[in-house]
Computed example of a mutant assay.
Amino acid sequence: MTITAAMVKELRDSTGAGMMDAKRALTETEGDMEAAVDWLRTKGLAKAAKKAGRTAAEGLVGVTVSDGRGVALEINSETDFVAKNEDFQNLVREITRVAHQVGDSVEVVKAADLNGKTVEDVLNESIARIGENMTLRRLHVLEGDTVVSYVHNAAADGLGKIGVLVALKGPAAKAEEIGRQFAMHVAATNPASLGEADLDPALIEREKTVLSEQARESGKPEAVIEKMIEGRMKKFFEEVTLLGQKFVINPDVTVAQAAKDAGVEITGFARLAVGEGIEKKEEDFAAEVAKTLGG
């Protein structure tokens, strides 16, 4: 019987199995869909769909840099136990390597080749094998004359809970040295943008509205209120932009001044923190252990 692409897709959608596994299952069962599902279940390859609804808010950020190109990639798991698993760490490391070679988006990385299979299929197979939902959630690519990286709460080399990339112009040796300090600063302060011009206009407008209402509650003359708003917005920009922030290693100067003093220019940065923005259901430790042991 001819196995069509539509049949493979249907089986993949219903089981979460990888494309090649779905095709093989249909081939082995001569196109019988129900038998193919059972074949995948016996091989442990149909678990992915069952796990897919679970919240994956733990995991690791993988970071790699070479030749002026840096990649930070987040892969989530359900529990921190899996994040400490060597198989999971190797998976994140391998996918990060692929992303560095070919990736400019999550979709491109998922479709890329990893040891003869797509990254997406490898991830689905890992879900079935390890027994937890996993997601390739976010990817940042940063390029520049010099790109440095920093990993906070490292689980292994290039893997951790927070991954940072910083791109710089200037003498390479100096950029490497102070660039790591800037990357540590970014990990600690989580700036919203590089500079004022890069800030989301909606964020600026929202902050200005709040500060304006606060200033007008003072009952002072309009001219004074405008000055108050101007001053408070200036402080806001200093707090949320990387270049405007006080340098954590030397709070007497801003990051912009520290870069200038070192003879370098920061041209960009990226920061990924595991689970950022994911609403995670709180569970006690015993419940987490029980869930992990129960698969």
Rank of each mutant, 00 (worst) to 15 (best):
M1W: 00
A6I: 13
M7H: 11
K9V: 05
K9N: 15
K9I: 08
R12N: 13
M19V: 09
M19W: 00
M20Y: 00
K23C: 06
L26T: 05
E30S: 15
M33R: 06
V37K: 14
D38G: 10
A49F: 11
A52L: 06
G68V: 08
V71P: 05
N76C: 06
F81V: 03
A83K: 02
N85C: 13
D87L: 13
N90P: 04
N90D: 15
L91G: 13
L91I: 07
V122Y: 10
V122H: 05
S126T: 12
I127E: 13
M134N: 10
G144R: 02
T146C: 10
Y150K: 04
A156I: 01
K161E: 15
A173G: 09
A183V: 07
A188Y: 02
L203I: 04
R206D: 15
S212N: 11
S218E: 14
G219T: 01
G231Y: 05
M233D: 11
M233F: 04
K235C: 08
E238M: 05
L243N: 04
Q245H: 03
Q245P: 04
I249T: 08
Q257G: 10
G263L: 11
G263A: 11
T267I: 12
L272F: 08
E282V: 11
A287Y: 01
A287K: 03
V289T: 02
A290S: 12
